[in-house]
Lab assay of single mutants.
Amino acid sequence: TTIEWNGTKITVDNPQKAKELAKKIAKKLGLTVKVHGNTITIE
């Protein structure tokens, strides 16, 4: 699972952990999480 935001890509083996990490990042930055299959985008 890949997390993408602002040109940065982070690959996380565990999809559940990836989703939790994305939510934490999005919350800190005041952004939203969008899931597209194996890609999680923070916008």
Rank of each mutant, 00 (worst) to 15 (best):
1 T>W: 14
1 T>I: 15
1 T>G: 08
2 T>G: 07
2 T>Q: 08
3 I>L: 08
3 I>C: 07
3 I>Q: 06
3 I>E: 05
3 I>R: 02
4 E>Y: 12
4 E>C: 08
4 E>S: 10
4 E>W: 12
4 E>H: 13
4 E>M: 10
4 E>A: 08
5 W>R: 04
5 W>Y: 11
6 N>V: 08
7 G>S: 08
7 G>D: 05
7 G>Q: 08
8 T>S: 09
8 T>I: 15
8 T>L: 15
8 T>G: 13
8 T>Y: 15
8 T>Q: 12
9 K>M: 10
9 K>D: 02
9 K>V: 13
9 K>Q: 10
9 K>L: 09
10 I>P: 00
10 I>Y: 07
10 I>A: 01
10 I>S: 01
10 I>F: 10
10 I>H: 02
10 I>K: 01
10 I>C: 13
10 I>T: 02
11 T>C: 11
11 T>Y: 15
11 T>A: 05
11 T>M: 11
11 T>I: 14
11 T>P: 03
11 T>N: 07
11 T>G: 02
11 T>E: 09
12 V>M: 13
12 V>F: 12
12 V>W: 03
12 V>D: 00
12 V>H: 02
12 V>K: 02
12 V>T: 05
12 V>C: 13
13 D>W: 15
13 D>V: 11
13 D>N: 13
13 D>T: 13
14 N>F: 04
14 N>S: 13
14 N>H: 06
14 N>P: 07
14 N>W: 05
15 P>K: 10
15 P>Y: 14
15 P>E: 09
15 P>I: 11
15 P>W: 14
15 P>T: 05
15 P>F: 15
15 P>M: 14
15 P>D: 05
15 P>N: 07
16 Q>P: 02
16 Q>S: 10
16 Q>E: 12
17 K>R: 12
17 K>Y: 13
17 K>Q: 10
18 A>M: 02
18 A>Q: 01
18 A>E: 00
19 K>S: 07
19 K>C: 15
20 E>T: 11
20 E>A: 15
20 E>S: 10
20 E>D: 10
20 E>W: 15
20 E>Q: 14
21 L>V: 06
21 L>T: 02
21 L>P: 00
21 L>N: 00
22 A>H: 00
22 A>P: 00
22 A>T: 01
22 A>L: 03
22 A>V: 03
22 A>Y: 02
22 A>D: 00
22 A>K: 01
22 A>I: 05
23 K>D: 15
23 K>T: 11
23 K>P: 01
23 K>I: 13
24 K>P: 00
24 K>L: 14
24 K>M: 12
24 K>N: 07
24 K>S: 08
24 K>A: 12
25 I>T: 01
25 I>L: 09
26 A>R: 14
26 A>W: 04
26 A>I: 04
26 A>P: 01
27 K>R: 10
27 K>S: 11
27 K>T: 09
27 K>C: 08
28 K>F: 11
28 K>W: 14
28 K>D: 10
28 K>M: 10
28 K>P: 02
28 K>N: 07
28 K>C: 08
29 L>W: 14
29 L>R: 04
29 L>H: 14
29 L>K: 05
29 L>G: 03
30 G>L: 02
30 G>I: 01
30 G>M: 03
30 G>T: 02
30 G>S: 03
30 G>Y: 02
31 L>Y: 07
31 L>F: 07
31 L>P: 00
31 L>H: 05
31 L>I: 07
32 T>Y: 06
32 T>R: 07
34 K>R: 13
34 K>G: 02
34 K>Y: 10
34 K>I: 12
34 K>A: 07
34 K>M: 08
34 K>E: 05
35 V>E: 05
35 V>L: 08
35 V>G: 01
35 V>I: 14
36 H>R: 11
36 H>P: 00
36 H>M: 10
36 H>I: 11
36 H>T: 10
36 H>D: 12
37 G>V: 03
37 G>T: 02
37 G>H: 06
37 G>P: 02
37 G>R: 03
38 N>Q: 07
38 N>M: 06
38 N>V: 04
39 T>L: 10
39 T>G: 03
39 T>F: 07
39 T>A: 06
39 T>K: 10
39 T>P: 00
40 I>Q: 00
40 I>F: 03
40 I>K: 00
40 I>W: 02
40 I>C: 03
40 I>P: 00
40 I>V: 05
41 T>H: 10
41 T>N: 04
41 T>G: 02
41 T>R: 11
42 I>N: 00
42 I>R: 00
43 E>L: 14
43 E>K: 09
43 E>I: 14
43 E>C: 11
43 E>G: 15
43 E>S: 13
